[in-house]
């Protein structure tokens, strides 16, 4: 009864409804057309390679024979895997937490400054990020050598006289976290600056009138409003961190004693494919790595209600 009466009250002429529906459909088609080029690229260079690797991980790629989970078993039997996993867990934990705390803190502080000063400082922060991470590694190999580094005095304070002392003292995990932090945080500071400048002035004004000081404004007003940008930073940093490759791979440039070709899981996958020629085990490792990344990203997205629109 209720339903029919409701339907009856709308009473829209049939042809107008049809026209509106057609318009809606046309809008939908247009939006699909807009995302189509990206979808094609995503399919070709993102989805299909993942499916291909997934399929390959169940084959002996040398003779092309299906052999079930043998590749996974062999990957797990690799004596270097456990250590590599610990390495990346340590690296990700350190890098992500430092990035979130320092970048958010710096961004909130920059937001207090006048716009021109803040923009200048942001640009300076961004500069190291404009260098590719491979070049950053080479740069760092010099920065951590007490004989040529501008931080000589700091290193000498700790009693570090040679590059090896610095590398030992910091540990590979912190060293790579520092390298990555300086390579990537500048970009995030700019993103955060954008998020903060988008906040409504009225809200800020109101909080000031209500007597909130700068600290309270930053922590209780601004931070909750840019929370999603912080979460995004966390998710992307984490996904990138799990795939760490360039930093340890290039350590060998400082001499064979620093070479760590098996430091991260990604490096192991690379080594299996390109130095041992076993694409199957490489695909198995890569599949496991992407599964972990996607799972963690999904958990974070749901936990932070990332896509929920208020």
């Amino acid at each position: 009864m209720n339903k029919t009466s409701q339907a009856g009250t709308i009473q829209v002429p049939k042809d107008r409804m049809k026209r509106r529906r057609r318009q809606q459909r046309r809008g939908l088609v247009a939006s699909y057309l807009f995302v189509l080029p990206y979808l094609c690229l995503l399919l070709m260079f993102g989805v299909i390679p993942v499916i291909y690797a997934f399929g390959m991980s169940f084959f002996d790629t040398i003779s092309g024979v299906f052999w079930g989970i043998t590749n996974y078993k062999m990957a797990f039997q690799d004596y270097r895997l456990e250590e590599a996993i610990y390495n990346i867990i340590g690296f990700v934990a350190l890098w992500v937490s430092v990035t979130i705390i320092v970048v958010t803190g710096l961004s909130l502080m920059l937001d207090i400054l006048s716009r021109r000063v803040a923009t200048t400082i942001r640009t300076i922060y961004f500069l190291p990020g404009a260098i590719t991470s491979s070049a950053i590694v080479v740069l760092w190999l010099f920065l951590v050598d007490p004989l040529v580094s501008p931080f000589q005095a700091v290193f000498h304070m700790f009693g570090w006289e040679a590059r090896q002392h610095v590398v030992n003292g910091l540990g590979m995990v912190s060293l790579f976290a520092i390298m990555s932090f300086f390579a990537h945080s500048g970009g995030w500071i700019i993103v955060m600056g954008g998020a903060l400048s988008g906040l409504s002035r009225e809200v800020m004004e109101a909080s000031r009138v209500d007597g909130a000081n700068l600290w309270q404004q930053a922590v209780y007003v601004k931070l909750p409003m840019i929370w999603k940008s912080v979460a995004l930073m966390g998710i992307l940093t984490l996904a990138g961190g799990l795939q760490i490759f360039v930093e340890p791979q290039l350590m060998g440039m400082a001499g064979p004693q620093y070479a760590r070709s098996d430091w991260s899981v990604n490096q192991l996958a690379f080594q299996y494919a390109f130095s041992m020629g076993d694409f199957g085990i490489s695909a198995a490792l890569s599949t496991m790595l992407i599964t972990v990344s996607v799972t963690i990203a999904l958990i974070l997205i749901f936990a932070t209600k990332f896509y929920q629109v208020k």
Partner: peptide, 19 residues
Amino acid sequence: LGYDMRSAFGKTISASLST
């Protein structure tokens, strides 16, 4: 050899021997 003796050296010996 199919593996690198030098990187094994770098991994297990260098850090300690250089200090």
